[in-house]
């Protein structure tokens, strides 16, 4: 083992997260804050789970299953709590007025006006963005959970040894189901799955939170998230018995189902999801993205040569004329 392995593991584990972060979060300061707030909420849930485990282990002899259940419930509750906090922020805070000195804000959602450039430079439009917020916050939770899951193991991989000796010396034989040299790969796959699952579960739970009280079937996405979370955790516990390939296959299938369901929540259909996946493979083989990227670069270059750019602050700056102000009154 060595440092190359650890770096490889980190790259492989967090590539999807980094790609998502770069595409949807990095350019927007509000989303960055929400991303890290998501991480914080997951950490709080971990703290509560740990305290519960500590308390339970002093009373009960075997607390694994109970602690696992408590941990999952705590995570889902933290998702709900995060939603409620954002809802509160959306409602209770007020307008954002640039005509006042200092500028005054009255609401997270009022930073932008639909179809116009943001009054806060770099902040994206929040209109109709509940699924985008769920993605951002869920990714924050997913990344921190994957990081907590893997970092000790990856640090160990940088050293000379791998997991298993103390147990082997105790029992007198090496666990035949241990992953052996493939253990890093198992951790990588688990980390990728965990991150994407958290995104999907957040979209699902927040959909329930959004619709609860308005639709009789609003609880379904939330319930599906909790059930799939419990199921995936149970599957993970089977890893120690050596069913790695089976466990990862089933978990991947569950992830696909969750993503498809999220697609349905976001207005798509199963048919469109399957079509999109098929198209993805076709595009990948025909290098469509690369061709698009090159063409886009060409167009941008031509546009820049035609119209000189102006600072965004000037375009979005305060104006004394009421009709032209970017300020939105509540």
């Amino acid at each position: 083992m060595g440092i190359v392995l650890t770096v490889s593991c980190y790259i492989a584990s967090f590539s999807p997260s980094i790609a998502l972060f770069y595409s949807f979060i990095a350019h927007d300061p509000v989303r960055i804050i929400l991303f890290f707030l998501g991480s914080f909420f997951w950490l709080v849930s971990l703290l509560i789970s740990s305290l519960a485990w500590l308390g339970l282990s002093t009373v009960l002899p075997n607390t694994f299953l109970i602690s696992l259940g408590v941990c999952i419930v705590a995570q889902e509750l933290s998702r709900v709590a995060y939603f409620m906090l954002l809802k509160k922020a959306q409602k209770k805070l007020g307008n954002f007025r640039l005509d006042l000195n200092p500028p005054f804000s009255r609401g997270l959602n009022k930073i932008t006006r639909h179809g116009q450039i943001s009054v806060a430079p770099g902040v994206s439009d929040l209109h109709n963005a509940r699924h985008m917020l769920a993605l951002v916050c869920g990714l924050g939770m997913g990344v921190i959970s994957a990081l907590f899951y893997t970092m000790n193991a990856f640090a160990t991989f940088a050293g000379p040894g791998t997991i298993g000796l103390p147990m082997a010396l105790e029992t007198g034989h090496i666990d035949s189901n241990r992953a052996g040299k493939y253990l890093p790969l198992c951790y990588v796959l688990s980390a990728i799955l965990l991150t994407l699952f958290h995104v999907a579960w957040t979209i699902m739970v927040w959909d329930t939170c959004h619709k609860i009280g308005r639709f009789p079937t609003a609880f379904v996405p939330g319930a599906a998230a909790v059930v799939s979370h419990l199921f995936v955790a149970f599957l993970s516990s089977l890893n120690s018995r050596g069913f790695y390939i089976l466990v990862f296959s089933v978990q991947f299938l569950v992830l696909l189902i969750c993503i498809a369901y999220c697609n349905v929540i976001m207005g798509g259909t199963i048919q469109s999801f399957v079509t999109a996946i098929g198209q993805s493979f076709v595009d990948a083989f025909t290098l469509k993205q690369i061709r698009n990227f090159v063409e886009e670069r060409k167009m941008r270059t031509q546009q820049r040569q035609a119209v000189p750019d102006e600072p965004m602050t000037e375009r979005g700056g305060a104006s004394d004329e009421p009709g032209t102000s970017n300020t939105v009154d509540a």
Binding site: V4, S15, A19, V188
Partner: peptide, 18 residues
């Protein structure tokens, strides 16, 4: 694992760029 990490990075880019 180094090769797997490169493949993972490429797949992530291809998937997200869509």
């Amino acid at each position: 694992m180094l090769i797997i990490s490169v493949i993972s990075a490429l797949l992530s880019m291809i998937a997200v760029i869509r």
